[in-house]
Amino acid sequence: MSETSLSSAIDDYISARLEAKPDKWLTKGEWLDDAAKRAKQITLVTHAPKFTHGDARGIGARVEGQEGEDYLSTASLTVPVIDVIGNAAALDVANLLLLEADGKRLVDLIRNGDSSPLAAFTKEKVQLDSWCDGFSQVLVGGSVTTHTLAKQIYFPVDKGYHLLSPLFASSLCHALYQRIDQSRFGDEAKAARDVRRKKEFSDLTIVDFPHLAEQHFGGTKPQNVSLLNSKRYGRAYLLSCQPPSWQDRLTAPQSEAHFWKRYEYRVAPILRELSHFLKLLEQADNNDAIKQRRAGFVDDLMGALLNYAAELRTLPAGWSRAMAEPMSETFCRWLDPTDNQKLSDEEANQIGLEFGRWLNKRLQKRLAHIGDAELHVWRRLLARQLRLLKQDLEGWA
């Protein structure tokens, strides 16, 4: 490692601090004296307590990377980004210690007893040792403590406890944030989306994160939570953990009655709305608005019937003939056609009549006045749909 390059980075950093507050420190050595004294106010961690609650106290925790992890955790990060908690006014000390050159950080060198990057700022060994001793305080931390507002849950096992609710994994959160941000807003991601917008060919891959959520910590003062939280402006990404929506495997109905039972389950909400609508208008006279609304409900029911029939027609041919309780020949020709069978107009009307009877029977549970007159209405309303049904079935066959 080049000591000069890290010393140069330290020099640039302290120069910026002196320029920001020229009246507070006169030399770089004075700034380092002050920084070494304030170092004990901060702690280097990978897990921070204030993400759980802003008033939570505790020292946090630091987990180093481990080989052979089989699941995602902070330990699975080879080189976790170190977070800093403590007095927000001392975060400038943290930024100094986390300065890096040639793959080495100042804090790592101090841990190993190497003070060479700081030697360029003093000729006195006593002063250099005092800097190293002060900065080493961030590695010691205080006694292991937690806090009620950290909301950790411990479960007693044998002679100890098992932690069920760990502290917020700040380093892991930061790694996730960087990965997602690069995939969404990196130069390659922008170029890929620009090519897609122009509808041009490209070898670039677009990475998307469905249902991505964003959580904020710290309000207007994210630095009070942690250093990494401040660098993210208080933002953290949440990936969706919703379970997948499984589609039930389509199976053949066991009988004609079972067919209508399954269909009724599918259209139950529509059927309830139609029944409620007709109940409200039980004493009202028919008009065009009522007829159109009623026809709309029936159209929805008929559309669902067509969709269900289309699904059943995708099953292996002959399923209706192997049923223990076979359906009528008309229904078999409709739902399970063989040898390019086509429904006749009479058969299509028979299906429509069965639909009308089914609908009447369901409505009569709440509307006693529904009878043959209404059946005539359903048939008249269905006549238009039946013509479309016949055309579709002929196209499917």
Rank of each mutant, 00 (worst) to 15 (best):
residue 2 S to C: 08
residue 5 S to R: 10
residue 6 L to G: 03
residue 8 S to L: 02
residue 11 D to F: 04
residue 12 D to A: 07
residue 13 Y to F: 15
residue 14 I to L: 15
residue 15 S to W: 03
residue 16 A to N: 04
residue 28 K to W: 01
residue 29 G to T: 01
residue 29 G to A: 03
residue 33 D to N: 09
residue 35 A to T: 02
residue 35 A to S: 07
residue 41 Q to K: 14
residue 47 H to R: 13
residue 47 H to Q: 10
residue 50 K to V: 05
residue 50 K to C: 03
residue 51 F to D: 08
residue 52 T to W: 03
residue 56 A to N: 05
residue 58 G to I: 02
residue 59 I to S: 05
residue 59 I to T: 07
residue 61 A to D: 07
residue 63 V to W: 07
residue 63 V to H: 09
residue 68 G to D: 04
residue 69 E to L: 12
residue 74 T to A: 06
residue 75 A to M: 02
residue 84 V to G: 01
residue 87 N to R: 09
residue 87 N to L: 10
residue 88 A to G: 04
residue 93 V to F: 01
residue 98 L to M: 10
residue 99 L to D: 02
residue 100 E to S: 06
residue 105 R to C: 04
residue 106 L to F: 02
residue 108 D to E: 09
residue 109 L to M: 11
residue 110 I to S: 01
residue 111 R to T: 06
residue 114 D to C: 01
residue 114 D to R: 07
residue 117 P to Q: 06
residue 118 L to A: 00
residue 119 A to F: 00
residue 122 T to G: 05
residue 125 K to Q: 14
residue 130 S to T: 10
residue 131 W to G: 05
residue 132 C to L: 07
residue 138 V to T: 08
residue 151 K to A: 10
residue 154 Y to T: 02
residue 157 V to Y: 02
residue 163 L to R: 12
residue 165 S to H: 13
residue 168 F to M: 03
residue 178 Q to P: 03
residue 179 R to D: 14
residue 181 D to H: 12
residue 182 Q to D: 09
residue 185 F to L: 10
residue 186 G to Y: 13
residue 187 D to L: 14
residue 196 R to K: 15
residue 196 R to W: 02
residue 199 K to E: 15
residue 201 F to Q: 10
residue 201 F to V: 09
residue 202 S to L: 07
residue 204 L to W: 03
residue 205 T to N: 08
residue 206 I to K: 06
residue 206 I to D: 15
residue 210 P to C: 01
residue 212 L to V: 02
residue 215 Q to N: 13
residue 215 Q to Y: 07
residue 222 P to N: 07
residue 222 P to R: 03
residue 224 N to H: 12
residue 225 V to S: 00
residue 225 V to T: 02
residue 225 V to G: 00
residue 227 L to T: 01
residue 231 K to N: 08
residue 235 R to I: 04
residue 236 A to C: 08
residue 238 L to Q: 14
residue 240 S to M: 08
residue 244 P to S: 01
residue 247 Q to N: 09
residue 248 D to A: 14
residue 252 A to K: 10
residue 254 Q to N: 12
residue 258 H to T: 07
residue 262 R to Y: 04
residue 267 V to R: 03
residue 269 P to D: 04
residue 275 S to Q: 06
residue 277 F to D: 05
residue 283 Q to K: 12
residue 283 Q to N: 13
residue 284 A to V: 09
residue 291 K to D: 14
residue 300 D to M: 08
residue 302 M to I: 08
residue 304 A to G: 09
residue 306 L to C: 06
residue 311 E to A: 11
residue 312 L to T: 04
residue 314 T to C: 09
residue 317 A to E: 14
residue 320 S to P: 06
residue 321 R to L: 11
residue 322 A to Q: 15
residue 323 M to L: 15
residue 325 E to T: 14
residue 327 M to P: 01
residue 328 S to H: 08
residue 328 S to K: 05
residue 329 E to I: 05
residue 330 T to L: 01
residue 332 C to V: 11
residue 333 R to H: 11
residue 334 W to A: 13
residue 335 L to F: 05
residue 340 N to C: 08
residue 341 Q to E: 15
residue 342 K to H: 11
residue 345 D to Q: 13
residue 347 E to I: 00
residue 354 E to R: 13
residue 362 R to S: 14
residue 362 R to T: 10
residue 365 K to E: 14
residue 367 L to E: 00
residue 368 A to G: 11
residue 368 A to W: 00
residue 372 D to Y: 10
residue 373 A to G: 15
residue 380 R to W: 08
residue 386 L to F: 04
residue 393 L to H: 12
residue 394 E to I: 07
residue 394 E to H: 15
residue 396 W to L: 13
residue 396 W to F: 10
residue 396 W to S: 07
residue 397 A to G: 13
residue 397 A to T: 12
